[in-house]
């Protein structure tokens, strides 16, 4: 279970508070959606969970299955099973996608004291998955995300997620920039990963993704914290009514 308590996060060298007392619990096996106005701090939450520099936690706690996440380096959090699908995936020039992913997978395994995945198994798994996500095989040979379209980058995030099999997934606006076909492929991938021992936090601006990935709970992030929560239907209400009534 991911447990966030009274989380305060500031940016700009700690001068600009963004989250001011956010509390949230995502039990294993559940998918929670976070919606909210632009600039509310949704991406800030995702960066804080993954340990990006510049997002200073001034108060509060975050634990995953009882382990203190905030004490860990970003790579330790990844090895503990936290995966972020970036709102804006980065380009890594000169590093072929397969090399990148194999290095990442085996670094995580090593950190967990597990055996490395050998090249043949890795190749087989990645080829099958690429086919399932309808990705061109050449994409895996190119430097990671370099020259990919916005939609291809998002698909690549899902590809990485499914290869790494994390136990807690944060998706930050993975739906933006996707056409309906791509959205369905991404949603199928996510739904396949739903399992009793995996939690998911899906940040989205639009309700349409939630037609494909039906969440257990929907939360509104506004004014530095969770301003309201509801079931899957709540997303439709929010889409209709907007976030005005949660504004400060």
């Amino acid at each position: 279970m991911l447990k966030i308590e009274n989380l305060h996060v500031a940016v700009d060298d700690g001068l600009k508070p963004i989250l001011t007392g956010l509390s949230l619990e995502v039990p294993k096996g559940e998918v929670h959606a976070i919606m909210g106005p632009n600039g509310a701090g949704k991406s800030t939450l995702s960066y804080c969970l993954t340990g990006r520099d510049g997002y200073e936690v001034t108060d509060g706690t975050v634990t995953l299955d009882g382990e203190d996440l905030l004490e860990m380096e970003p790579e330790e959090r990844a090895a503990a099973g936290v995966f972020l699908s970036f709102q804006y995936p980065l380009e890594i020039p000169g590093v072929p996608t397969m090399t990148f992913l194999k290095t990442a997978l085996n670094a995580q395994r090593k950190a967990r004291g597990e055996e490395e995945m050998k090249a043949p198994e890795f190749l087989k798994k990645s080829r099958a998955l690429a086919a399932e996500l309808k990705m061109k095989p050449e994409m895996l040979k190119r430097p990671l995300n370099v020259g990919f379209s916005g939609g291809e980058k998002k698909r690549m995030e899902i590809f990485q997620m499914m290869m790494l099999e994390p136990n807690f997934v944060v998706m930050d606006e993975t739906d933006s920039g996707l056409d309906v076909d791509a959205l369905r492929i991404v949603a199928d991938g996510v739904n396949k990963l739903r399992s009793p021992d995996r939690g998911m936090l899906i940040i989205t601006h639009y309700q349409r993704l939630l037609d494909y990935i039906v969440p257990d709970r929907v939360h509104v992030l506004a004014n530095g914290g969770i301003a309201a929560s509801g079931d899957a239907d709540f997303a439709k209400t929010l889409e209709k009514e907007g976030y005005d009534k949660y504004a400060a």
């Binding site: 790579e75 970036f86 890594i92 590093v95 990148f100 670094a107």
Partner: peptide, 26 residues
């Protein structure tokens, strides 16, 4: 590139190794 380094670490690649990979690629 600090953002690229963070992205690599988020995927589990330790900082020193991420630095080496980016430098080698460069």
């Amino acid at each position: 590139d600090e953002s690229a380094l963070f992205y690599m670490r988020q995927r589990g690649i330790p900082l020193a190794q991420a630095r080496a990979m980016l430098t080698e690629a460069f």
